[in-house]
Amino acid sequence: DEETLERIAKELKEKGWTLIVNGKLITDAREALKWLLEEEERR
Score class of each variant (00 low, 15 high):
residue 43 R to Y: 10
residue 40 E to G: 06
residue 38 E to Y: 10
residue 31 E to M: 03
residue 5 L to I: 08
residue 11 E to H: 12
residue 25 L to K: 03
residue 1 D to I: 15
residue 28 D to Q: 04
residue 17 W to L: 11
residue 32 A to E: 02
residue 35 W to S: 04
residue 13 K to G: 14
residue 21 V to H: 01
residue 43 R to Q: 09
residue 41 E to Y: 08
residue 13 K to H: 12
residue 30 R to G: 04
residue 5 L to F: 09
residue 25 L to M: 08
residue 26 I to N: 01
residue 16 G to L: 15
residue 5 L to W: 12
residue 34 K to W: 06
residue 22 N to D: 11
residue 25 L to G: 00
residue 3 E to G: 12
residue 14 E to I: 04
residue 1 D to K: 07
residue 23 G to V: 12
residue 29 A to I: 14
residue 20 I to C: 15
residue 32 A to N: 00
residue 33 L to T: 00
residue 29 A to E: 03
residue 31 E to G: 03
residue 26 I to G: 01
residue 24 K to N: 05
residue 2 E to H: 09
residue 1 D to M: 15
residue 19 L to R: 02
residue 20 I to F: 07
residue 24 K to G: 04
residue 33 L to H: 00
residue 21 V to N: 01
residue 4 T to R: 13
residue 40 E to R: 08
residue 11 E to K: 13
residue 42 R to C: 13
residue 15 K to V: 04
residue 6 E to W: 08
residue 25 L to A: 03
residue 14 E to L: 07
residue 14 E to N: 06
residue 12 L to M: 08
residue 2 E to Y: 13
residue 32 A to S: 01
residue 23 G to N: 04
residue 18 T to E: 12
residue 5 L to A: 03
residue 13 K to Q: 11
residue 32 A to Y: 13
residue 39 E to V: 08
residue 37 L to W: 08
residue 6 E to N: 09
residue 3 E to F: 12
residue 9 A to W: 14
residue 43 R to H: 08
residue 23 G to I: 14
residue 21 V to M: 04
residue 37 L to K: 07
residue 16 G to V: 12
residue 8 I to M: 06
residue 38 E to T: 03
residue 26 I to E: 00
residue 27 T to V: 12
residue 25 L to R: 01
residue 2 E to C: 15
residue 41 E to L: 13
residue 10 K to I: 06
residue 18 T to I: 14
residue 39 E to F: 12
residue 9 A to F: 15
residue 12 L to V: 08
residue 41 E to M: 11
residue 43 R to L: 10
residue 8 I to K: 01
residue 11 E to N: 09
residue 17 W to F: 13
residue 5 L to S: 03
residue 15 K to T: 05
residue 22 N to P: 09
residue 4 T to K: 07
residue 33 L to A: 07
residue 11 E to P: 01
residue 9 A to D: 03
residue 24 K to S: 05
residue 24 K to W: 12
residue 1 D to S: 05
residue 2 E to F: 13
residue 4 T to L: 14
residue 32 A to K: 03
residue 24 K to Y: 09
residue 30 R to Y: 14
residue 32 A to I: 14
residue 20 I to K: 00
residue 32 A to T: 05
residue 30 R to K: 11
residue 27 T to P: 02
residue 31 E to Y: 01
residue 40 E to H: 14
residue 20 I to Q: 01
residue 32 A to C: 14
residue 3 E to T: 09
residue 41 E to V: 11
residue 37 L to Q: 09
residue 7 R to D: 03
residue 42 R to T: 04
residue 39 E to R: 04
residue 15 K to E: 10
residue 41 E to K: 11
residue 11 E to A: 14
residue 10 K to Q: 10
residue 38 E to K: 07
residue 9 A to S: 07
residue 24 K to C: 13
residue 19 L to I: 13
residue 5 L to R: 03
residue 8 I to H: 02
residue 4 T to N: 05
residue 8 I to G: 01
residue 34 K to H: 03
residue 33 L to F: 05
residue 34 K to Y: 05
